[in-house]
Nucleic acid binder design. Structure first.
Lengths: 257, 257
DNA sequence: CAGTAAAAATGACAAAAGTCATTTATTTAT
DNA sequence: ATAAATAAATGACTTTTGTCATTTTTACTG
């Protein structure tokens, strides 16, 4: 039954489920009818493997501010986000947070350290109430070994992440903060999109978090955000950020590629 | 048999081969007796697959300054370095080079774009005369699909690269140039090691290249190198850099982890 | 081996970004 | 609802880093 659902009436089901599962039901959800079923890397996995994952997964809800795992601890599996938003960050040598990734529904996390065979090099913290499924290490590894399509998707995912990191690295080395802030705002938009109004970024980040994403001092981020507002590119209402002139922001970001 | 080699007499074989293959023989070299046989990712590949790669590979020598591939062009396969040194770099939006990786014998390159299914995002240029084997795209993909051990090694490699990139990114965002330069010198040492004298870095990089590795202006790199020399941590003779006080350099790099 | 070109080094200065102190606004908890 | 705590905003100032111009050194070529 689930298979029929999955294969044939995919689009329709997806839409319906997205509405049906808007609220968090950690107990009755299954991978087969997860609202992120066709959105995640497991999309490419064989049905049997998805079923195995479904049998062994453990769902959990993390409240805003709670951490899924901490830098330095041992990975026991991977997490698959069915709902919510997560930031992943390194602690710099002087104790300053550097946000290296924003995680959204459908994404997986915790795989980097697991595949490297190392401890976590980053901390994952929920930016809002978030529902994730935990897939135990051994099962994940086993499925990855058996399912070459999934393994390929994993390699593609890692390659894409690596690309992102390399581009960010280049920009950190070469671009002024003004450009990087504009780019960061657009990146947030790409990742989490807008609220219903079509202009407000649908995530609440503190100024400090924005600074830690850009790679600058909090005060510098605040000052530049104010400038952007004065220039009419964005609007600020507490933690709400509205993108008024995306084109102008893009120009400010000065992205060639 | 290869497995026995790999596991038991590895060290001995490696040393012998390194002497035997010191000079470049692009035509008569095979993967099976390549001096990097037990050093590269293909160490973990099944013997049959190594043989297939050996049959289809194309060896080539690139002179110092020649490029293996350019940012923006299509990947046709991956390269395996049997001898030499290569830099990989992005061109920043304003045309400035950012070196994102130093490649050494035994490393492979060109896999990132190939796995992502994109064009090359970096340019690879030989830092000295370098011998590489080219493995065609389809074969590489095929072997990766068939050989789950190799696929796993690939994922591990990507994960490690991603980790490196994330750490570098954090340091670029948070550490002063002085610390980053010290770190870079130690990184060069880790990657390419010393010459016979045990103190001279065994790669010649221009001041500009060092700056593009650190992520700073050439003049800043020059000035700080001079300071390091004045402080007795390093010695400079043209493009030769000697590491006099590695411990002091490490302290200057201010690395916590 | 000279002569030229390129790279490295240095100085003076400008711009960018960070820090610290203080004020204002916004949350949060009582 | 109000006080306390936290976050945001702003100003003054310092430090870091980059830029441009110039000199010196090194490498290259005929």
């Amino acid at each position: 039954m689930a298979a029929v659902f999955c294969t044939f009436v995919r689009g329709v089901i997806e839409k319906n489920l997205q509405i049906a599962f808007m609220t968090i039901h950690p107990d009755n959800s299954t991978c087969q009818n997860c609202n992120q079923r066709f959105n995640s890397i497991f999309c490419k996995a064989h049905e049997d493997h998805v079923n195995q994952i479904n049998d062994q997964k453990v769902c959990n809800v993390y409240k805003k501010g709670q951490t899924l795992f901490n830098e330095g601890s041992h990975p026991l599996g991977v997490y698959c986000v069915s709902n919510g938003k997560i930031k992943m960050s390194h602690l710099g040598d002087d104790g300053k947070e550097q946000i290296i990734r924003l995680v959204k529904a459908g994404d997986i996390l915790g795989y980097r350290a697991l595949l490297s065979g190392e401890r976590y090099s980053a901390t994952a913290e929920a930016l809002e109430d978030t529902q994730v499924c935990f897939i135990p290490r051994d099962l994940f590894i086993k499925v990855l070994k058996l399912d070459s399509n999934l393994a390929f998707e994993m390699m593609k995912l890692l390659s894409d992440e690596l690309h992102r990191a390399e581009v960010k690295l280049t920009h950190l080395a070469q671009k002024p903060i003004r450009e990087r802030l504009a780019e960061t705002l657009l990146f947030i938009k790409e990742t989490y999109g807008y609220e219903q109004d079509g202009v407000t970024l649908s995530v609440r980040l503190s100024r400090e978090e924005i600074a830690n994403l850009v790679g600058t001092a909090t005060e510098s981020a605040i000052r530049l955000l104010s400038e952007f507002k004065k220039d009419g590119m964005i609007d600020l209402e507490g933690k709400k950020i509205k993108i008024i002139q995306p084109k102008e922001l893009l120009r400010t970001a000065n992205i060639q590629d």
